[in-house]
Computed example of a mutant assay.
Amino acid sequence: MNNLVSKVKCTSYNLDKVENAIKLSLNQIGNIENVIKEDSKVLLKPNLVSPLPPEKAATTHPVVIEAMIRILKGIGVKEIWIGDSGVHGTPKIFSICGMNDLAKKYGCKICDFDNYYIDEIYEESNKYMKRLPLSKYITESDVIINMPKIKIHHAETYTGAIKNMYGSIVGKNKMQIHARTQTKDNFQHVLVDVLNSTKPNLCIMDAIVGMEGNGPANGKPIETNMILTSYNAVAMDIVAARQIGIDVKEVGYIEKAIKRGLGPKVQEVKEIGDKLPVITYDRPAVALKFLGRFAQKLMPVFYYLFKPVPKFDPIKCIECGICKEICPVNAIRMEKIPVVDKKLCISCFCCQEACFSDAIERSDVKKEKKKACKRGA
């Protein structure tokens, strides 16, 4: 069961069509009645990264959430929670992304992870952080339904089911973890630790319209026309990454999750449902791809000279200061436009993710961005 991933074609956010697509995908993976009971406290964990309207494709579309709520109501579930922890203040995000309206319409509970108790979860099998500051909503729920959005990620190449669970970390603890990990390799281990600690019961991915380019918040919407469903986040990410033209070997945290036994190996994943064409997403062309963990460990001087840092667009920047506020290592100071201290910067690009003015890009992105292959190939 953990190696099954259902792909169902869905070409619009028409509520009835989305609900039917999710129902079909749930039937294909089977055994849903053994996972969700009428008396379960069910937590829906969407991707609500930023206070952007649904048409920007940065967040899980409210229609996908609504369709799942209707399905849960249909099987008799009475307690349905919607929760996340986002940048710019979670209440604002819930409002702009349509979650408050859904909660009011269906009697669901809004769970602001940043304004509730923290549960310090200890997991012996974690590799980098055995103790994690998770929202108590995570531990108080009976069933967690992970509802990610398919997107390019400027730092991690791809973001989906595994990375969506990082939102279970409460508030500024997320930034502090970036400061603690320092390197991309260490942070990827933390992403896998969070997945291992939260253990979502079901994953339903909004891949009707995804985000290509400068994701996860400032890219461009791209029609991908599918709903993905699986009981395993790793299996889902393997399939989703391939569907947008990404080799799983390029996504370090997926490989780490596989090695740690949290999901099937690539060749063990079984795709069921519709046969859909690969839609190759455009993504930033990084000039020096090998500047990763090997360069940091083996060539620190070279890495310092060429490491990627945030680059600010003086025309787009609105001088809001969110980049300075969110930087986990205080590497940004405000002048006419933000200025980065290259010595302090750890290249986490939290600032880029938080900037909804699209004023930040990586310094190592090539000016000419070319697609790897034609779409639909």
Rank of each mutant, 00 (worst) to 15 (best):
H178M: 08
D185V: 04
N330A: 06
E124L: 05
R375W: 08
G76R: 12
G98P: 10
G74D: 14
N115Y: 13
K172T: 11
I71T: 11
E156Q: 13
A241Q: 08
N196C: 09
F306Q: 02
V63M: 01
E361C: 05
I244H: 07
N330K: 15
N201A: 11
Q243F: 06
Y231P: 01
I22Q: 09
D114P: 02
G376E: 12
T183D: 06
I32N: 05
E255P: 00
V77A: 08
K371P: 03
T224Y: 10
I162K: 10
S168H: 03
P148M: 09
R260Q: 13
M99P: 01
D274A: 05
S40Q: 09
Q267T: 11
N201K: 13
E212D: 01
G86T: 14
Q182I: 14
I169H: 02
A235D: 02
K41T: 14
Y106H: 13
Q352M: 14
T159V: 01
R260I: 03
C111E: 11
K307H: 10
K37V: 02
D341Q: 07
N173G: 05
L52S: 13
I254E: 01
V234Q: 10
I360F: 10
L102E: 02
P284K: 08
F356T: 12
R242N: 15
G321A: 07
A21G: 08
D282W: 12
M226F: 11
P314K: 09
G263F: 12
A179F: 05
K109Y: 04
F113R: 01
T181S: 12
Y106T: 08
M334G: 05
H178W: 09
L262Q: 05
L344N: 11
C111Q: 04
V251D: 06
N3W: 09
G86N: 10
I110K: 01
V329A: 07
K41S: 13
T224H: 09
G107S: 06
I121T: 13
D185P: 00
Y231W: 09
F187T: 02
V301Y: 09
V192L: 10
L24F: 01
E120T: 02
S85L: 02
V248T: 15
I71F: 06
K374Q: 11
Y117M: 04
S141R: 03
E223K: 15
K370I: 15
D364K: 00
D358W: 04
E268I: 03
R283A: 07
C203T: 15
N3E: 13
K17C: 02
A57H: 00
K151Y: 12
G261A: 04
F302L: 14
P216S: 07
F306I: 07
Y106K: 02
I246N: 01
K56A: 12
G98M: 09
I110H: 05
K275W: 02
A287W: 00
V239Y: 07
G261H: 01
I145G: 07
I208W: 03
K370F: 09
G273D: 06
C373Q: 14
I337E: 12
T139A: 04
E79K: 15
